[in-house]
C-alpha cells in the first residue's frame, strides 16, 4: 500500500474514532452544531499527526516525529480553550458548574484528541508494517482500532456517584428558620414566603457514602457543586437570579459523612432526583483514596 494511502486511511480511522466519542448528552456539551464541528476538525488534525508518525520514521525523516511534541502542545491548548470558554459561561448559569467540573470536562476533550491520534497511529502502523494483502491489512487495522477505542472509552468513562454512595429521597422540613433535609441542616431561610415555596416545590435526597474513600471523595466541594449543577440541569430549576434561597445545595453531615441535597425542580419527582444524582460523573480531581495509606485505614476503622 502506498504511503499516501496509508496516511489517508489512518487519518480517516482516527477521525471516525473521534466522531464516535463525540456525543451530545444532557449537558448539551459540546454544543451542536458549531462546537461539534470544532472538535471534529481538531480530531482530524490529531489523527493526521498520528498517521504520519510511522511512515516518517520508516523513511528516516526523524524531524517529522518532533511534530508529535508540537501536537501535544496543541492539545493542551484544547484543554485551555475548553476551560476558558466554560469559565466565561459560568456567569450565565443559574447554578454554576464549579471549577472542578470544568476542569474535568476540559481534560476529557484533551484526552479524546489523544485517542484520535492513537488510533491513527495504530492504523498507520498496521498498514505500513504488515506485508499482507491490502484488504486484510485494512481489516486488521480497523478491528484493532475499534478494540482500542471501545477499551479506552470504557476505562476513561469513569465512575458515577451511584457507585460511591447509596442515594435515598428525603423529606424537607424547617426547624425555626433552618431548612433540613432529613436530619441534615442545609441553611437558614429568613422569609416565610420563601419557606412556603420551598416546602411546596422543593425536593431533598440523602447520599450515604459506601466507605471511607467515597466519604472523603463526596465531601469535595467541587464534587458537590457538580451534583447540584447536574440536578438543576436535568430536573430544571425554579429560581431567578434575585432568589438566592432557591439555589440548590449539597451539605455534609460531618458525624456520618452523609450528604443532604436540596433543590427546587420544575417537576417534583423524587425518583428522578435520585436517578439524576446517581448518574452524576465522579470528578477525577475529587477522587481520593485514603484507604491506600495505613494511617487512612486506621482512621477508617473508627467509622465502620
Amino acid at each position: 500500500m502506498s504511503t499516501g494511502m496509508t496516511i489517508f486511511l489512518a487519518t480517516l480511522v482516527g477521525t471516525v474514532s473521534r466522531f464516535l466519542l463525540l456525543e451530545v448528552d444532557y449537558r448539551q456539551y459540546p454544543s451542536y452544531p458549531q462546537g461539534y464541528l470544532v472538535h471534529l476538525a481538531l480530531g482530524a488534525i490529531a489523527a493526521f499527526l498520528g498517521a504520519v508518525a510511522i511512515p516518517a520514521l520508516v523513511n528516516e525523516d526523524y524531524t517529522a516525529a518532533t511534530f508529535l511534541a508540537l501536537a501535544a502542545q496543541q492539545f493542551r491548548e484544547v484543554r485551555n480553550i475548553e476551560r476558558e470558554s466554560l469559565t466565561r459561561l459560568e456567569g450565565s448559569e443559574l447554578v454554576r458548574r464549579g471549577t472542578a467540573y470544568i476542569e474535568g470536562i476540559a481534560k476529557v476533550f484533551e484526552a479524546r484528541n489523544y485517542i484520535a491520534m492513537l488510533t491513527a497511529f495504530l492504523t498507520s502502523g498496521v498498514l505500513f508494517l504488515l506485508e499482507t494483502p491490502a484488504w486484510l491489512e485494512v481489516l486488521i487495522a480497523v478491528g484493532l482500532s475499534a478494540l482500542l477505542v471501545s477499551y479506552l472509552d470504557r476505562t476513561l468513562r469513569g465512575v458515577r456517584v451511584g457507585q460511591y454512595a447509596q442515594v435515598e429521597p428525603a423529606e424537607l422540613h424547617f426547624i425555626g428558620p433552618d431548612l433540613y433535609v432529613g436530619d441534615i441542616q442545609i441553611m437558614n431561610v429568613g422569609g416565610p414566603t420563601a419557606r412556603e415555596m420551598i416546602l411546596k416545590h422543593g425536593l431533598g435526597a440523602i447520599l450515604i457514602p459506601k466507605d471511607i474513600n467515597s466519604r472523603v471523595t463526596l465531601a469535595h466541594i467541587g464534587q458537590r457543586q457538580a451534583i447540584v449543577h447536574d440536578v438543576a440541569t436535568i430536573l430544571g430549576i425554579r429560581k431567578e437570579v434575585d432568589e438566592p434561597e432557591f439555589t440548590p445545595m449539597a451539605k455534609i453531615d460531618h458525624e456520618t459523612g452523609r450528604i443532604g441535597v436540596y433543590t427546587m425542580p420544575v417537576n417534583k419527582d423524587s425518583g428522578a432526583l435520585v436517578t439524576a444524582i446517581k448518574h452524576v460523573p465522579l470528578l477525577e480531581s475529587a477522587k481520593k483514596r485514603p484507604s491506600a495509606a495505613i494511617s487512612g485505614r486506621l482512621a477508617a476503622r473508627r467509622h465502620d
Binding site: 425555626g176 428558620p177 431561610v189 429568613g190 422569609g191 437570579v241 434575585d242 432568589e243 438566592p244 434561597e245
Partner: peptide
C-alpha cells in the same frame, strides 16, 4: 418582611433570620 423581601430582590441577597427575630441580608 416586606422591606426585607424588596431589599433581597434588589440587592440579590438572601434573607436570614437571627434567633432574636432580626433579619439580615447576606450576599
Amino acid at each position: 418582611l416586606a422591606i426585607s423581601t424588596t431589599l433581597s430582590r434588589t440587592t440579590r441577597s438572601m434573607i436570614h433570620e437571627l434567633p432574636n427575630g432580626v433579619y439580615i441580608l447576606i450576599r
